[in-house]
Amino acid sequence: MRLNTSFATIASLVALVTAAPTDLTERQSAVRIMALGDSITGSPYQGCWRAYLWQKLQQAGIKNTDFVGTLPGQGCGFQYDGENEGHGGYLAVNIASQNQLPPWLSSSKPDIVLMHLGTNDVWNNRSPQEITTAFSKLVDQMRASKSTMKIVVAKIIPMNPSNCADCGKRVVALNAEIEKWAVGKTSNQSSITVVDVWTGFDTKTMTGDGVHPNDTGSKKLADSWYQAVAAAIKG
């Protein structure tokens, strides 16, 4: 009888080990990630940095992710989790003043927000202070949705369009303001991490029009986002 009991115990243990997932991340709850921005985040091809970021996370074994948003993914040449809130032509100041963000948050319920926003504001000559004031309202709305929201904000990529000679220096001014703004707005409960996607981004080789990333630019963006996003997911 003792021998039979021992065999049964061993068999049960073997069964448990065999049934256990080999990837620990598969047993974790999915972390919901919302990419918020304009056409650089959402439009076909230009928003493919999200696809490359998802791919890099997968390849690193970080598979407990669910990219969320009310907009579908775009074709980027391979299957990926592509839902997002990249709204072409939108200004941060308008998203804030028109309270467009709360319904998106309510629908998608993110744990992390990735924000590359401000390009259209710069193009429309909105001041860095106007833009970061809008950012503050958006962050307040994110925290109202989830008090422990993790927010990863980009110092936006350079601009050099043919019809906006001053856009390049306006981006530099905005990015400097974003650094200062984030320090004052972050909290222990809901952190704001600034990602520098500006440095090393070449508008000549990484865009087709001085503004929107091409494939090379999308891969550069994914590389720039990766460490901060991976850290936010891991907690």
Score class of each variant (00 low, 15 high):
Gln59Gly: 02
Asn64Glu: 05
Gly73Trp: 02
Ser107Ile: 11
Lys63Ile: 15
Val93Thr: 15
Pro103Thr: 15
Pro72Gln: 09
Gly75Glu: 02
Leu71Ile: 00
Gly69Leu: 06
Gly73Ser: 07
Gln100Arg: 09
Pro103Arg: 02
Gly73Glu: 06
Val68Trp: 15
Leu105Gly: 06
Leu101Cys: 06
Ile62His: 08
Leu71Ser: 02
Gly89Asp: 12
Gly77Thr: 03
Trp104Leu: 03
Leu105Ile: 10
Pro103Cys: 03
Trp104Lys: 08
Lys63His: 10
Ile95Thr: 09
Leu91Ser: 10
Gly89Met: 14
Leu101Phe: 03
Glu85Thr: 09
Gln74Trp: 05
Ser108Gln: 06
Asn94Lys: 12
Gly77Glu: 14
Asn84Arg: 04
Leu101Glu: 00
Leu101Gln: 06
Leu101Ser: 06
Gly61Ala: 11
Thr70Val: 09
Val93Pro: 04
Asn84Thr: 01
Lys63Trp: 05
Gly82Arg: 09
Leu71His: 05
Gly86Asp: 13
Gln100Ser: 08
Asp66Pro: 04
Trp104Thr: 07
Ala96Tyr: 12
Gly89Phe: 15
Gly82Val: 09
Ala96Asp: 07
Ser106Cys: 08
Gly77Tyr: 10
Ala96His: 00
Asn64Asp: 01
Ile95Arg: 08
Gly77Arg: 00
Gln100Trp: 03
Lys63Pro: 03
Pro102Ser: 01
Tyr80Ser: 00
Phe67Gly: 05
Gly82Glu: 13
Ser108Thr: 10
Ile95Cys: 12
Ser108Gly: 05
Tyr90Cys: 07
Ile62Tyr: 06
Gly89Pro: 15
Asn64Ala: 01
Asp66Trp: 08
Tyr90Gln: 15
Ser107Glu: 09
Leu91Ile: 13
Ile95Ser: 07
Glu83Ser: 13
Asn84Met: 00
Val68Met: 05
Asn94Val: 14
Leu71Phe: 03
Leu91Asn: 13
Gln100Phe: 01
Ser97His: 10
Phe67His: 05
Ser107Asn: 12
Asn64Gln: 06
Gly77Ile: 01
Gly73Asn: 01
Asp66Leu: 09
Ser97Cys: 04
Asn64Gly: 02
Asn94Glu: 12
Asp81Lys: 09
Ser97Ile: 04
Thr65Ile: 04
Gln74Tyr: 06
Tyr80His: 07
Val93Gln: 08
Gln98Gly: 05
Leu105Glu: 11
Leu91Ala: 07
Asn64Leu: 03
Leu101Asp: 01
Gln98Leu: 00
Asn99Ile: 04
Lys63Ser: 12
Gly61Ile: 07
Tyr80Gly: 03
Ala60Asn: 13
Gln74Pro: 00
Gln74Arg: 14
Asn94Arg: 11
Gly75Pro: 01
Gly75Met: 07
Ser97Trp: 08
Asp81Glu: 13
Gly75His: 11
Ser97Ala: 10
Ile95Asn: 08
Val93His: 03
Glu85Asn: 14
Lys63Ala: 06
Asn94Ser: 15
Asn99Tyr: 14
Ser106Phe: 00
